[in-house]
């Protein structure tokens, strides 16, 4: 399988502080990979580094063999990386429809069909299509944020903690949708909810204190209670 996204020895910083010290990760086309770790380990910073929302100091990041280090964020997105931030990044002053339209690179037949199929995944959004985003619940905002990343033909979707702060019943819905998405798309999922990560991902990487310390098949991690306890705090 060809490597879609490859990060090697990545070091990145915010202000005066180095957050990532040595992150190595490789995702192949069609894979769903969970990036796991405790709070403050550097998972969110790594996704931001991929989007050049946080600057890379050292190391290399390649998308299908092309370096994306230092490339402006909007160009990285146009290269085919969809990004769903931790705080949803929904535009409150716009309706659901407008949020999706802003995200569309083209409004051709193909894109509109894709929007229809995305809305089939999230019927809640279909019902409230003309509603202002400011009126949406946390779960609906997350659904909208994920939908925005799916309206274009992206090569990979980066999703940051989709289950954070949501009710169990909403998490269940999201897990179902993400599982469906990961069948067709390449996904890098940052997640603290281990059950959710297991439901969606095939592979995992663990980050601890800004370094990737372990990786492998998610089924193996599900069996390895010691590793779960050591790096994820799962009892």
């Amino acid at each position: 399988m060809s490597s879609l996204l490859k990060a090697s020895n990545v070091e990145s910083y915010i202000g005066l502080y180095t957050i990532l010290h040595d992150v190595n990760l490789e995702i192949n086309k069609g894979e769903a990979v969970a990036l796991l770790g405790r709070n403050g380990a550097g998972k969110t910073t790594f996704l931001k580094t991929l989007m050049n929302l946080v600057s890379t100091r050292k190391g290399s990041i390649e998308l299908e063999g092309r370096s994306i280090v230092g490339v402006p964020t909007h160009k990285i997105a146009k290269m085919g990386i969809g990004y769903v931030p931790e705080d949803y990044g929904v535009f409150d002053a716009l309706t659901i429809e407008e949020n999706l339209r802003v995200a569309m690179w083209k409004e051709d037949k193909e894109t509109l069909e894709r929007v229809d199929s995305v809305l089939d995944l999230f019927p809640d959004l279909k019902v409230a299509y003309k509603r202002m985003a400011s009126t949406l619940s946390g779960g609906q905002r997350q659904m909208l944020s994920i939908s925005r990343a799916l309206v274009n033909e992206n090569r990979i979707i980066l999703i940051d903690e989709p289950s954070k702060g949501l009710a169990p019943v909403v998490i269940e819905k999201l897990a179902h949708a993400l599982k469906a998405i990961s069948k067709d798309a390449t996904v890098l999922l940052v997640e603290q909810n281990f059950a959710m990560a297991c439901a969606v991902a095939d592979k995992y990487y663990i980050i601890s204190e800004g370094r990737t310390v372990n990786n492998g098949d998610i089924k193996d991690l599900m069996q390895n209670k010691e590793l779960q306890h050591k790096h994820l705090g799962v009892m």
Binding site: M51, L53, P72, T73, H74, A77, K78, Y83, P85, G89, F91, D92, A93, L94, E98, N99, R101, V102, A103, W105, R148, N152
Partner: peptide, 19 residues
């Protein structure tokens, strides 16, 4: 729409592929 979105979250507008 892009201007209104940019008023709120310019970083997110960039992350959607818009200069």
């Amino acid at each position: 729409m892009i201007v209104r979105a940019g008023v709120q979250r310019p970083d997110m507008v960039r992350a959607l592929g818009i200069n």
